[in-house]
């Protein structure tokens, strides 16, 4: 679903990504872990077509980036730590706006469906700026799945959420992933990542330093795996 070969990203003369190779099979849920400044967000922004690679080849859902960015965007749902929503619009209006941007027809039905899924049906006519951080994040996920994307990218979705909101987000993320979607998530939260993901890749110093599947990882030693990968 996602194929990345020898991806290099420079900012000016500073090289952030130094030849990342990254493959994700359809239906995989990959947690991308790594210390601050490892280039996780940069990498995800490149996959999301928001940033251009300096070198290397990227295919998302069978389309090349950046040359076929429009086709990739239509198949991609992105949730970042910012809500990407308009505070002065209601939940429903926000979704309606994005439905139009994605060219979805018959969107009213779809909006109802999505609102129900993220548990915000009752608040559909309320302004988003009155929402709590957790509700905003759930709506952000609703916004990202609106056009039924094949690939989902989550960039630190738990930032700024309390325990309750985080566990609610877990449920939503699980139901999103349960659709057979391919998911890539960056996170600092190893515990949650361990619960959700089927594969763990560690990005360090601009390359994927280590990768392990859930099967290859015995219970609750993601932390030691992570530490070991960074130490190498």
């Amino acid at each position: 679903m996602i194929e990345v070969k020898k991806l290099v990203k420079r900012f000016g003369m500073k090289t952030v990504l130094r030849g990342v190779d990254f493959d994700v099979q359809p239906g995989e849920f990959v947690a991308l872990l790594g210390p601050n400044g490892a280039g996780k967000t940069t990498f995800l922004r490149i996959l999301a077509s928001l940033s251009r690679p300096s070198l290397g080849e990227i295919r998302v859902a069978g389309y090349r980036l950046p040359s076929e960015a429009a086709a990739v965007r239509a198949r991609l749902g992105v949730v970042s730590h910012l809500p990407l929503l308009y505070g002065d619009l209601t939940a429903e209006e926000n979704l309606r706006f994005f439905a139009r941007m994605y060219g979805i027809t018959n969107y009213e039905l779809r909006i109802t469906e999505v609102l129900e899924m993220v548990g915000l049906s009752a608040r559909r006519h309320d302004l988003v700026r009155t929402f709590s951080r957790g509700m905003q994040q759930r709506l952000a996920i609703g916004r990202a799945v609106l056009h039924d994307p094949d690939v989902m990218l989550f960039d630190e979705p738990y930032t700024g959420l309390d325990q309750d909101a985080s566990s609610m987000l877990d449920d939503v993320l699980r139901s999103v992933a349960a659709q057979g979607r391919t998911v890539v998530m960056t996170s600092h939260d190893l515990v949650r990542a361990e619960d959700l993901a089927t594969r763990f890749d560690i990005l360090s110093r601009g390359v994927i330093a280590a990768s392990v599947t859930r099967k290859g990882l015995s219970r609750s030693n993601l932390l030691s795996f992570y530490k070991q990968a960074l130490a190498n």
């Binding site: 239509a74 139009r100 941007m101 994605y102 060219g103 979805i104 027809t105 039905l109 129900e116 609610m168």
Partner: peptide, 26 residues
């Protein structure tokens, strides 16, 4: 919270066609 399967019912995602898509997005 309800986490029932999310399927695309009567909804179709259109590929953005050139002029119509442009005007609609504007």
């Amino acid at each position: 919270m309800d986490s029932r399967p999310l399927t695309v019912s009567s909804t179709t995602v259109r590929r953005p066609s050139s002029t119509v898509g442009f005007v609609r997005a504007v």
